[in-house]
Simulated scan of single mutants.
Amino acid sequence: MSSATARTTSSGSESDVLAVMDQRKRKRMESNRDSARRSRMRKQRHLDDLIGQVAKFQGDNARIAAQISTFAQQFTRLDTENAVLQAQVAELTERLHSLNSVLRLVEDFSGVAMDIPEVPDPLLKPWQLPCPSQAITASAMFQY
């Protein structure tokens, strides 16, 4: 082979190597673009999921806030009703004691023995059941 042919062959193989390297570079760039596109799509899906979760949580938060408001109104109403009932219990208890005092005075002046039993007030001791010997069964509690 002549030196011109060798140069052509070497420059030919050199250009083949450059062409192969150029092709690999283009493939790598295309692969990187695809990878970047897939990454952007994943990020967008993740962002959309997070936005959906935020909307759901805001809705849940609003619903819970409305429930809290309703429960607070019910509590206020029941607390007021409880205060009224406690005042009525105190008034009725005072009346009972007053009536018992009058009956004792009548008993003292008349000399007639009157049976004035102390009336137990279960409302003043709600932790004590009026009939502790009676058992409450679970089946009786859930009958409709």
Rank of each mutant, 00 (worst) to 15 (best):
S2A: 05
S3G: 05
S3E: 07
A4I: 11
T5F: 06
A6M: 06
T8D: 07
T8Y: 11
T9K: 11
S10A: 15
S10P: 02
S10T: 15
S10D: 13
G12D: 00
V17C: 03
A19C: 04
V20W: 10
M21I: 14
Q23C: 02
K25N: 13
K25T: 13
K25Q: 15
K27T: 11
K27P: 03
N32F: 03
N32K: 05
N32A: 06
D34T: 11
S35E: 03
S35T: 05
R37S: 15
R40F: 03
R40A: 11
R40K: 11
K43N: 08
H46Q: 08
L47F: 04
L47D: 06
D48E: 14
D48C: 04
D48Q: 11
D49L: 06
D49P: 01
L50Q: 15
L50S: 14
L50Y: 13
I51S: 15
G52K: 05
Q53L: 11
V54R: 05
A55I: 13
A55H: 12
K56E: 08
F57E: 15
F57M: 12
F57V: 12
Q58P: 00
G59S: 09
G59A: 06
N61K: 12
N61I: 07
N61D: 10
A62P: 00
I64D: 01
A65F: 10
A66K: 12
Q67R: 13
S69F: 06
S69T: 08
S69Q: 14
F71H: 07
F71T: 03
F71R: 08
A72N: 04
F75R: 09
T76P: 07
R77T: 13
D79V: 04
T80N: 13
E81A: 15
E81M: 10
A83F: 01
V84C: 07
V84Y: 09
L85S: 09
Q86I: 03
A87P: 01
A87Y: 02
A87T: 08
